[in-house]
Simulated scan of single mutants.
Amino acid sequence: MFAMRRRGRVYYGLGGAAASDPDAAGVLPRPVRRAFRLAVSLANGRVTIPRFAGIAAAMSLFAATGLYGMVLGGHTGAVAEATTSAIGFSIDNVKVSGNLQTSEIDILQQLGLDGSSSVVFLSAASARERLISLPWVENAEVRKVYPSTVEIKLFERTAYGIWQHGDELSLIEKDGKVIAPLRDNKFASLPLFVGDGAQLEAAAFAEQLSNWPDVQARIKAYICVGGRRWDLRMDNGVVVRLPEENIARAMHTLSTLEQDQQVLERDIETVDLRLPDRTTIQLTEGAAARRDKAVADRAKMLKKLMEKGA
């Protein structure tokens, strides 16, 4: 193989010496010439390789291989998040406000935060959607404060009453939407609505009784019967049966009986107000037994008096 210069150019032949005629020599393809010249320069010592070039090349190869593996394995995002966390963007502080019923543990679990979470890669919109899926949360605001803080403001639902359906007890809003199952006694003072469909009419029906506050204050449960009418269970166990229509008339009758005769204080089981022209009162078993005994004793006494008079 040979090389020769002509007009400032070097031609590389395939023989062992410089060719006398560059046109007659075998010329290398253009793309190969640069690499060939570099190889010749390295062989002649005209080009010096940097001292740590080999190490740098090996590290570059390993880095490229690792990056390729991350891309194939889908770990690029995790690595990037860990990297930003390591340089000072890890989430170290979560400020939560407005959470009266929602625990901070539930909030952190819903967001999936851990020691490697980065504020850079936290999606505020996605975090908000996950928080809204919590039972008590109606709305939420999520704000990132660089370099390491997340601020969360919750807007929670308001419990209006307790709905009993079968053996289940659930907290409901005023419009009847179920919030969550009842788990403790701190909501025991809320009104109880019983029966299928009772949660949907709860607020509207309770509002109808607000004109009789003394009676309403003693109601322990509102019982929806067949989706058509309501019974009232009072705090002493007495059941008041209301009609389907003209509830105001029935409530006025009940209020009058209570004021004049303290009917709800007596040993009775039910007060039936379903018929517009009469009120039916059913005694408890004990009261009925005592009444029957009193009637029988009175009959015996009258009989004795009649026998003496005869």
Rank of each mutant, 00 (worst) to 15 (best):
V137R: 01
E138Y: 08
E138Q: 14
N139A: 13
N139C: 07
N139Q: 14
N139E: 15
A140L: 03
R143L: 11
K144Y: 06
K144S: 13
V145G: 07
V145S: 13
V145I: 12
Y146R: 13
S148G: 03
T149H: 07
T149S: 13
E151T: 10
E151W: 06
I152V: 10
I152W: 01
K153H: 07
L154F: 08
F155G: 01
E156D: 12
R157N: 04
T158G: 00
A159Y: 03
A159W: 09
A159Q: 10
I162G: 04
Q164V: 15
Q164A: 15
G166M: 07
D167S: 02
E168P: 09
E168S: 00
L169Q: 14
L171E: 02
E173N: 12
K174D: 09
K174T: 13
K174E: 09
G176R: 10
K177C: 08
V178Q: 14
A180G: 02
P181N: 03
P181T: 00
P181V: 03
R183G: 10
K186P: 03
F187N: 00
F187E: 03
S189I: 05
S189G: 08
P191D: 05
L192R: 12
L192N: 04
L192E: 09
F193T: 05
G197I: 08
A198Y: 10
A198M: 13
Q199V: 12
Q199P: 07
Q199N: 10
Q199A: 13
L200G: 05
A202K: 08
A204D: 14
A204N: 12
F205T: 12
F205H: 13
L209S: 07
S210V: 13
S210D: 12
N211S: 12
P213G: 07
D214T: 09
Q216T: 05
I223R: 03
C224Q: 13
R228I: 00
R228A: 02
R229T: 11
W230M: 06
R233Y: 00
D235E: 10
N236Q: 02
V239L: 11
V239T: 11
V239R: 00
V239Y: 08
V240A: 03
R241H: 02
R241D: 01
L242A: 07
L242N: 06
P243F: 09
P243W: 03
P243T: 04
E244Y: 00
N246M: 04
R249I: 14
M251W: 03
H252F: 11
T253P: 11
S255M: 05
T256A: 15
L257N: 00
Q259A: 11
D260L: 15
Q261T: 15
L264N: 06
L264F: 02
E265P: 01
